[in-house]
Design a protein around this nucleic acid. Structure first.
Length: 284
DNA sequence: AAACAGCTCAACCGCATGAGA
DNA sequence: GTCTCATGCGGTTGAGCTGTT
């Protein structure tokens, strides 16, 4: 006794969407908003299954989608996020405003994989090709979860939020990671030279540590009022899909979810998160 | 110009998950 | 606890496009 199919396949269209279908879907969602995908096709007069409608809207028709090629910065961000998260395309897409998980997945498979391979990097492990995996118990060079603090139970946190974060999660990387490709004019690879190259590229008082901090949680202010906070674009209500803004699973005022992944140099405790404008000793 | 190969990406499929009855 | 529903996610497919011979 299996589950009933999500739609009556015999009476649904498949394949490429026509302009008329797109127009109907856009028109319907403009009036009624997202959600209720199962009943949407019938209500909108579409001979499509709800899944198909949802996918079409999310991946193609949504007005906040960014069109055009990926920038070099987006490329690098995707690579870094993939090294952290693996094939969690939806999580990666959450960090790239205007990009969809499907788009990123396709781009990864068609471009970035090849790019990494040409650099001699395994796209799955992000390690140099043909290099055996060596476990160094003293100096973490890749993700190191051994000292990750507990994942606190939301039931016991001060506010009713998820508090799932990899605290103080720093990944030391060699400065050669900042170099473009494998080029090294002198061929030298000493630490001194790498440090100098790093300083040349990043002429502030930045050290050699990249902070690849990942934190997932609902920012505390989000439970108060999301209309008056300085929420950055990535997490602002304006940038969220209509369904997120109307999500009945959350109280009306609790729609700001901080999914911070700080990719960059470790920022100071006195600074605030550029994403949620929160200051919590460098974490949010 | 035609045939073929390779590539891109929109769309589909199956499965997982959470909510509610 | 079990079942169904609704939704979301990741892997895969295949039509159409582009480049090459």
């Amino acid at each position: 006794m299996g589950r009933s199919p999500c739609c009556e396949k015999a009476h649904t269209n498949k394949g490429a969407w026509t302009k008329e279908e797109d127009h109907r879907l856009i028109h319907y969602i403009r009036i009624h908003g997202e959600g209720c995908w199962r009943s949407l096709p019938k209500a909108a007069g579409l001979l499509r299954c709800g899944k198909s409608c949802r996918l079409r809207w999310i991946n193609y028709l949504r007005p906040d989608l960014k069109r055009g090629n990926f920038t070099e910065e987006e490329d690098e961000l995707i690579i870094k996020l993939h090294s952290l998260l693996g094939n969690k395309w939806s999580l990666i897409a959450a960090r790239l405003p205007g990009r969809t998980d499907n788009e990123i997945k396709n781009y990864w498979n068609t471009h970035i994989k090849r790019k990494l391979l040409s650099r001699g990097i395994d796209p799955q492990t992000h390690r140099p090709l043909n290099q055996p995996i060596v476990t160094d118990t003293n100096t973490p060079t890749e993700l190191d979860f051994r000292n990750v603090p507990r994942v606190s139970n939301p039931k016991f946190t001060a506010n009713p939020s998820l508090d799932f974060r990899f605290n103080e999660f720093q990944v030391k990387i060699k400065t050669e990671s900042f170099e473009e490709g494998n080029s090294s004019s002198s061929g030298m690879t000493t630490d001194e030279e790498q440090q100098q190259q790093c300083k040349d590229k990043f002429p502030s008082n930045i050290g050699q540590e990249l902070n690849l901090e990942l934190s997932i949680g609902i920012s505390s202010f989000g439970w108060k009022n999301n209309s008056t906070t300085g929420v950055s674009t990535a997490n602002s209500a304006e940038s969220k899909p209509e369904s997120d803004r109307r999500n009945p699973q959350f109280p009306e005022q609790a729609t700001s979810i901080c999914l911070c992944v700080q990719l960059g140099f470790h920022f100071q405790a006195s600074e605030i998160c550029s994403n949620c404008q929160n200051s919590n000793n460098g974490f949010c």
